[in-house]
Amino acid sequence: MPETVLVTGGSGYIAGWCIVELLRAGYDVRTTVRSHGKEKAVVDAVSTAVDPAGRLGFAVADLTDDEGWDLAVKGVDYVLHVASPLGGAAPDDPDAMIAPARDGALRVLRSATAAGVKRVVMTSAANAASPTSYATEGVTDETLWTDPQDPTLSPYRRSKTLAEHAAWDFMANAQGSTELTTVLPGAVFGPILTTSNIGSVGIIGRMVAGSMRGVPRIGLEIVDVRDLADIHIRAMTSPDAAGQRFLATGEFTWMTQMARTLREGLGAEGLKVSTRQVPDLLVRLVARFRDPSLREITPALGRRNRHSTDKAHRILGWQPRPAQETVLDCARSLLAHDAL
């Protein structure tokens, strides 16, 4: 009998590709949604890449509520805890994102350990293993933990760090045989399955559409969503992955390089892409006086911190594809879905 994997947050961008790759690998999949009304959208998205008939089931569960999680994990062999709150936290409520991420992870782990699930693979973020915002150069690995008290951390970055801390603390005292592994991805791009939830891919969409008239001096460690799904499955099955953190980052790429790749690689469809680099001072001024949403990115201006993925290569045999391929595949997928 095929083993069954629970993937949390099935309507999400990363979760969708995890479902696709698990089905391709022969697993049965159950995924959580916040309501039954979201099931068809997940099936439609997954069906663009693989036939899920008879092998994809659903459970209704929400990260903010205890109800549903025991039933969601019942009878499954593994859990990929991919779901996470996204978006900016309200200025008057800094815990608006932290609490769902941290408490949601604990809900999943409590139910998984009680049910005797073999292993939980939790999606964290490379930003949970990064140096202080004042550092501008260097290469770090999984042994480093981001300081959650750094005042420049965005709510998202703080939430991922605290959620992963809470998960490891919980597992240190948990009873039973369930194992935990965490995967820490960089900036996730690649093809989309649906236009309903494209996440960070929207950056490339804005570049191709020409609505981004210049690019800030920010570098990203680009990982393809297909490679991210692959490392989740490798981390789920490798005997040596139990109790480990794995960075899943790709090539460090300045946004100006991304823009040139799009402009040169898309032909006529890339003519609107701006390769003009916006001066750091201008970005800071706009963030301060005109667009407060930009304040979260100003600490990253000019930084070239990178992460080592040697551990993932060595233990899991994981090898991500080139960033240029990911960026172009992402753009072509957005164009094909008329998602600009």
Rank of each mutant, 00 (worst) to 15 (best):
V120N: 05
P52R: 07
L71W: 11
A115Q: 04
T152V: 00
M97I: 03
G54N: 07
A96Q: 06
D65W: 09
T152S: 11
A101L: 07
Q149R: 12
V120I: 03
D70L: 12
A112D: 06
E67I: 15
A129F: 09
S130R: 11
G75V: 11
S84D: 14
A135G: 06
P85M: 14
S133H: 09
P148V: 10
R157C: 10
A59W: 13
D92P: 05
V120Y: 02
W145M: 01
A61C: 12
D65S: 14
A115K: 09
D70C: 07
A114N: 04
V82H: 03
D147N: 08
L56K: 04
L80A: 00
A114T: 11
E137W: 04
L80D: 14
D150V: 08
S111F: 03
A61M: 01
D62P: 00
A99M: 10
D92R: 03
L144A: 09
A101E: 04
P91W: 05
Q149F: 10
V117N: 00
V108I: 05
K74S: 13
G88E: 14
S84N: 14
D95L: 05
Y78N: 07
L80R: 03
G104T: 08
K74P: 03
A53Q: 13
A101P: 08
G68P: 12
T140Q: 14
H81E: 03
G54K: 01
E137H: 11
V76P: 02
A59E: 14
S124D: 00
A135M: 14
V117F: 04
T136P: 02
P100I: 01
A126P: 08
P100Q: 03
L80C: 07
A112E: 08
G116H: 03
V139R: 12
D141V: 10
A112N: 07
K74E: 15
V117R: 09
P100S: 00
G75L: 06
T140P: 11
D62F: 12
G116R: 10
A90K: 15
A115C: 06
G75P: 10
L86Q: 12
G68K: 07
D95H: 14
R110H: 11
S124A: 08
G57V: 01
V117L: 08
K74W: 08
E142H: 09
P94Q: 00
A83G: 08
D62W: 08
D141K: 06
L106D: 03
D93N: 15
G54W: 00
P85Q: 08
L144T: 13
D92A: 12
L56G: 05
A72L: 04
A83K: 01
A59C: 11
Q149G: 14
R119S: 08
T140V: 05
K74A: 15
R55W: 11
N127F: 11
S84E: 12
W69H: 04
A105N: 13
T136K: 03
R102Q: 05
I98Y: 13
R107M: 07
L63E: 04
D103L: 09
A89E: 00
A99S: 15
T143Q: 06
T140I: 14
S154W: 07
D95W: 15
G104S: 12
A114G: 00
R107Q: 09
L153C: 02
T113D: 02
V120Q: 01
T140A: 09
A72Q: 10
